[in-house]
Simulated scan of single mutants.
Amino acid sequence: MTSTVNLQDWVGREIERTDHLRPEPARFMQATLDRDPTFATGDRLPALWHWLYFLEASRSSDLGRDAHPKRGRFLPPITLPRRMWAGGRFAFHTDLVLGQAATKKSTIKSVVEKEGRTGPLCFVTVHHDYLQAGQLALSEEHDIVYRADPGAHAKVTEPAQAPEHAEFSQTITPTQVMLFRYSALTFNGHRIHYDADYARDVEGYDGLVFHGPLTATLLLDLACRQTARPPKHFTFRGLAPISGLAAFHIEGQQNKDTANLWARRADGALAMSATASF
């Protein structure tokens, strides 16, 4: 599955980045979501919009086949070629405020190799702490999964179906412009989001792939608008890709202090499941 490098040597590795949370990226994100760009210095950054900041500026010559930065520096040198955002867990301690500096401290928490139904897998979990004015504002655990290219005779597993009885729902209609804008805002070069030939012919998708982090952002945004309350915790898990620019639904059911959330593809498949607490 991997080279003779001991991937466990990467567990515990740390990196720290500092960024100034300028209002402009948040305004660009508002425009990407078809909202009036109103954010200004002093405003609260919405939940999960921190992904617009602390970006890694890798040289073009330091990118891999998929246009992600080559591995072996902070992330371990896993040889499996396909990389996906598998899920994440978040604790919101206090607001991140626009117009101020903030620090992101990242630590590789675990590296686990497995044999899945469709071939070898490797899971990397990275813990991030985000601090502003010396105070912990947000804690995040980020799950990355690496897998092999799809073979000609690869097993096709049918995804689970999404729940049928949503209390609230919103239709999302992806466009190439939306995917391009979010990729640009997050400096995400992954070709599956803008190179349809690569997405289909190399990684085996139906077409351009909707960003998993953007799906999670939309789910939590929907829940916050539904409850009119800021989140305390949020967790999500990607279960099936959303690809081909087909419209899909973000949906949920509200309990007293929690919301069960999911993304339902056009074919009814459960693309993402999530839970938010308030």
Results as ranks from 00 to 15, higher is better:
Ser3His: 10
Thr4Met: 15
Val5Ile: 14
Gly12Trp: 03
Asp19Gly: 08
His20Cys: 13
Glu24Asp: 11
Pro25Asn: 08
Ala26Phe: 07
Arg27Lys: 12
Arg27Ile: 05
Phe28Asp: 09
Met29Tyr: 15
Gln30Leu: 10
Asp34Tyr: 13
Arg44Gln: 13
Pro46Gln: 08
Leu48Glu: 00
His50Ala: 06
Phe54Tyr: 09
Ala57Phe: 12
Ser58Pro: 01
Ser58His: 11
Arg59Ser: 14
Ser60His: 14
Ser61Asn: 13
Ser61Gly: 11
Leu63Gly: 04
Leu63Tyr: 04
His68Lys: 06
His68Leu: 11
Lys70Ser: 11
Gly72Ser: 04
Phe74Thr: 06
Pro77Arg: 09
Pro77Gly: 04
Arg82Trp: 01
Gly88Pro: 01
Arg89Pro: 00
Phe92Val: 02
His93Ala: 14
Thr94Ala: 15
Asp95Tyr: 09
Leu98Lys: 04
Lys104Leu: 14
Glu113Cys: 08
Glu113Trp: 02
Lys114Val: 10
Gly119Asn: 05
Pro120Gln: 06
Cys122Ile: 09
Phe123Ala: 02
Val126His: 04
Asp129Thr: 10
Leu131Ser: 09
Gln135Ser: 14
Ala137Arg: 04
Arg147Thr: 03
Arg147Leu: 04
Asp149Pro: 00
His153Gln: 14
Val156Lys: 12
Glu164Pro: 00
Ala166Trp: 08
Ala166Thr: 02
Gln170Gly: 02
Ile172Gln: 00
Pro174Thr: 08
Arg181Phe: 08
Tyr182Gln: 02
Ala184His: 01
Ala184Ser: 07
Leu185Pro: 00
His190Gln: 11
Asp195Lys: 05
Ala196Thr: 09
Val202Met: 06
Tyr205Thr: 01
Pro213Asp: 07
Thr217Glu: 13
Leu220Gly: 02
Leu222Phe: 14
Leu222His: 08
Cys224Phe: 05
Arg225Pro: 02
Thr227Leu: 12
Pro230Lys: 14
Pro231Leu: 14
Pro231Ile: 08
Lys232Pro: 00
Thr235Met: 15
Phe236His: 07
Ile242Arg: 05
Gly244Glu: 07
His249Pro: 06
Glu251Arg: 07
Lys256Pro: 01
Asp257Tyr: 06
Thr258Leu: 14
Asp267His: 03
Ala269Ile: 03
Leu270Glu: 03
Met272Asp: 00
Ser273Ile: 03
Ala274Arg: 12
Ala274Cys: 08
Ser277Asp: 10
Phe278Arg: 01
